[in-house]
Amino acid sequence: TSIVNVSSSLNVRSSASTSSKVIGSLSGNTKVTIVGEEGAFYKIEYKGSHGYVAKEYI
């Protein structure tokens, strides 16, 4: 489990790309479970499925 480190919110994306669809967002200090990594993104558990967040904010 890791913590989201942002002051406002962090986009959760459908794939490991800044141009991919935003499927949701997480607020600062939210706990997330990392299940993998791809480039500059972590794959996380998100709403019963998976999403991707930028590593620099975790």
Rank of each mutant, 00 (worst) to 15 (best):
R13S: 05
V6K: 10
V32G: 01
V22F: 06
S9F: 12
S8G: 15
S19P: 05
F41S: 02
T30E: 13
V35I: 14
N29A: 09
A16M: 04
V35W: 05
F41N: 01
S25P: 04
I58G: 03
V32L: 08
I44Y: 00
T1D: 11
G36C: 07
I3T: 11
I3C: 14
V35A: 04
V12S: 01
I34N: 00
I44A: 00
N29Q: 10
V32D: 00
I44T: 00
V12I: 09
G28C: 14
Y42L: 06
L10V: 15
E45H: 06
A16Q: 02
G36L: 04
S19T: 13
V12A: 01
A16I: 05
N5E: 09
S17N: 10
E37Q: 08
V53M: 03
V4N: 08
L26I: 14
E38P: 00
I58L: 11
S15V: 06
S14F: 10
G51N: 01
A54N: 09
S7H: 13
S15Y: 06
K31R: 13
N29W: 14
S8E: 10
G39Y: 04
T30S: 11
Y46S: 00
H50Q: 06
E38D: 09
G28F: 13
S15N: 09
Y57M: 11
G28K: 14
V35Y: 05
G48H: 05
R13E: 02
L10R: 05
V6Q: 09
R13N: 07
K47Y: 09
T30D: 12
S20Y: 05
S8K: 13
S27V: 11
S27A: 14
A16C: 05
S27P: 15
T33S: 07
F41Y: 09
S8R: 13
K43S: 03
S49H: 09
V35G: 01
T30G: 06
S14N: 08
G39H: 05
V22W: 05
G24E: 02
V6G: 11
L10T: 13
N11A: 15
I44L: 02
V53W: 01
S8V: 14
A16V: 04
G28L: 12
L26T: 03
H50A: 06
I44H: 00
S7C: 15
S49A: 12
E37F: 05
I23R: 02
I3S: 09
L10P: 07
T1K: 10
S25K: 13
S14C: 12
I23S: 02
T18W: 13
S17I: 05
N11C: 15
G48L: 04
E38C: 13
V6M: 09
E37S: 08
S27R: 13
H50Y: 15
G51H: 01
Y52T: 00
K31G: 06
G48K: 05
G48R: 04
S9G: 12
T18Q: 11
G39E: 06
S19C: 13
S27H: 11
S17V: 05
A16T: 05
H50F: 15
E56D: 08
I58Q: 03
V12T: 01
I23M: 07
G28I: 14
K55V: 05
I23Q: 02
Y46N: 01
S17P: 00
G36E: 05
I23P: 00
S14E: 15
N29I: 08
L26R: 01
S17C: 09
I58A: 04
E38W: 07
S7N: 12
I34Y: 01
G24Q: 02
T1V: 14
V53C: 03
S9D: 10
Y46F: 13
I34R: 01
A40P: 13
S49L: 11
E37V: 09
K47M: 14
S20V: 02
E45P: 03
S9C: 15
T1Y: 05
N11G: 07
Y46R: 00
S25I: 15
G24Y: 05
S7Q: 12
Y57S: 13
H50S: 06
V32N: 01
S20F: 05
R13I: 05
V4Y: 04
K43D: 02
K31S: 11
G51T: 01
I44G: 01
A16N: 04
S15E: 14
I23V: 07
S17D: 12
K21D: 11
I23L: 09
V32K: 01
T33R: 12
K55I: 06
Y42G: 02
E45M: 10
R13H: 15
G28H: 13
E38S: 07
K55A: 04
K55Q: 05
V4R: 08
G36V: 03
S14Y: 09
F41E: 01
I34G: 00
V4L: 08
G28N: 14
V32A: 04
S7V: 12
S7W: 05
S17M: 06
S17L: 06
Y57Q: 12
G48V: 03
T1E: 11
K43P: 01
K21W: 09
T1G: 12
T1F: 05
V53S: 00
S27Q: 12
Y46A: 01
N11P: 15
F41V: 01
Y46M: 03
R13L: 15
L10Q: 06
A54H: 08
S2Q: 12
G24T: 02
N5Q: 11
G36D: 06
Y42I: 06
S8L: 11
A16L: 04
A54D: 10
G48Y: 05
S7D: 10
E45D: 08
V22G: 02
T18R: 12
E37D: 07
L10N: 05
Y57H: 13
E38K: 07
K31M: 12
T30C: 10
G24R: 02
T18C: 15
V4C: 14
S9E: 12
S14K: 12
K47T: 04
N5C: 15
V53E: 00
T30R: 06
I44Q: 00
S27N: 10
H50R: 03
T33A: 07
G48P: 03
I44F: 04
G28S: 13
G51Y: 04
V35M: 08
V6E: 07
S14Q: 14
I34L: 04
V4W: 03
E45K: 08
V35S: 04
Y42M: 04
S49C: 08
A54Y: 11
V32E: 00
K31Q: 13
N11S: 13
I34E: 00
K43Y: 06
L26N: 00
S7R: 12
S25G: 06
T1N: 11
L10W: 06
S25L: 14
N11F: 10
V35L: 14
A40H: 10
G51I: 02
A40C: 14
Y57N: 10
V22T: 06
G51D: 00
N11M: 13
G48C: 07
I23D: 01
Y52F: 10
G48M: 05
E56K: 12
S7G: 13
K55E: 01
A16H: 04
V12G: 01
A40R: 08
V53D: 00
V12E: 01
G48F: 05
K55G: 02
F41T: 01
L26Y: 03
A40F: 08
S7M: 12
V32I: 11
G28A: 15
L26K: 01
V6R: 08
S25A: 10
A54Q: 14
S2T: 14
Y42T: 02
G51V: 03
G48E: 07
T30V: 11
K47S: 07
E37T: 07
S25M: 14
S15F: 07
N11D: 15
K31A: 11
I34Q: 01
I3R: 11
A54T: 05
K47A: 11
T1M: 08
Y42D: 03
S27L: 13
S20N: 02
E38L: 06
Y52Q: 00
S7I: 12
S27G: 10
G39A: 05
V32W: 04
E45N: 07
S27M: 13
A54F: 11
S7A: 12
S49P: 00
N29Y: 14
T33P: 03
G24N: 02
V4S: 08
T33K: 12
V22C: 08
A16F: 03
A54W: 10
S7P: 11
E45I: 13
I3K: 09
N11K: 14
S19F: 08
I23H: 02
S49N: 08
Y57T: 08
S7Y: 05
S19L: 10
V53A: 03
E56C: 14
T1I: 15
I34T: 02
